[in-house]
């Protein structure tokens, strides 16, 4: 089940903790994976690490700065060119944070997060959908966050972007459904990555205390949900949000 042999998948933010695990998991299922991120050298390291277990010819790197609208617009086409085949799976995983309490939040903090975490995924979805609708096939999986549903002090920008992503996904799912194209969301909870490593220990302990399954998530906890939604077997699932958060928020 859940084989993705020969399908071209684009994963943004593939140099990040969750992104690289998603890329690894899709690749393990047989997909041709295009890794995108801002740093070419890091992407090449990730590709080398995934390819070391075999199937290196099914890995491509395609750097892009998603804060640049034109670069986001062009990414799907350049990924298809690298892979030599049309895109079957788009995973919008790239994201960044600029955490601070709202009363201290600068316009720049707001707009940068909204640009990279919401506008760029929209641009990528738009570009991908054009081909997917024509081909009557495609899978889009957007990586949101539990805070898009629960909110989080200090993350008004990030939570707004992630909530926006969920609403966008549901809308796109309705638009694309008649063509067999699905659009779904995975909302990770508190996962151990570079993004959460910077949190103070006291805050981490408190967060873990609020997780019924009693531990922080690992990137490898998230990737299987993406594999499922990308698979043929998930063909009757669209507009859904899968929460993978150790039970921290049961929504």
């Amino acid at each position: 089940m859940f084989r993705l042999d020969g399908k071209v998948a684009l994963v943004t933010g593939a140099s990040g903790g969750i992104g690289r695990e998603i890329a690894r998991a899709l690749h393990a299922q047989g997909a041709v994976v295009v890794l995108s991120g801002t740093r070419q050298a890091v992407l090449e390291d990730v590709a080398a690490s995934i390819g070391a277990e075999g199937g290196a010819d099914r890995l491509h790197v395609c750097p892009a700065d998603l804060s640049d609208a034109a670069a986001a617009d062009a990414l799907v086409a350049s990924a298809e060119e690298k892979a030599g085949a049309p895109l079957a799976i788009l995973v919008n995983n790239a994201g960044l944070t600029r955490d601070t309490l709202a009363i201290r939040m600068k316009d720049e903090d707001w707009s940068r997060v909204l640009d990279v975490d919401l506008a760029a995924p929209f641009r990528l979805c738009r570009a991908a959908l054009k081909g997917m609708l024509r081909r009557r096939a495609g899978r889009i999986v957007n990586i949101a966050s539990v805070v898009g549903v629960t909110g989080n002090a200090g993350q008004a920008n990030y939570a707004a972007a992630k909530a926006g992503m969920i609403g966008m996904g549901k809308s796109l799912a309705q638009e694309a459904g008649s063509r067999g194209v699905t659009v779904n969301t995975v909302a990770p909870g508190f996962v151990q990555t570079a993004m959460t490593d910077v949190l103070p220990d006291a805050q981490k302990e408190k967060l873990v205390g609020s997780i019924p399954l009693g531990r922080m998530g690992q990137a490898a906890d998230i990737a299987p949900a993406v594999v499922y939604l990308a698979s043929d077997e998930a063909g009757w699932v669209t507009g859904a949000t899968i929460h993978v958060n150790g039970g921290m928020a049961m929504v």
């Binding site: 054009k130 609708l133 024509r134 638009e175 008649s178 063509r179």
Partner: peptide, 11 residues
């Protein structure tokens, strides 16, 4: 055609 077809046609 459905509504999506008409949009695709225009494009």
């Amino acid at each position: 055609a459905d509504s999506l077809d008409t949009v695709e046609l225009v494009m």
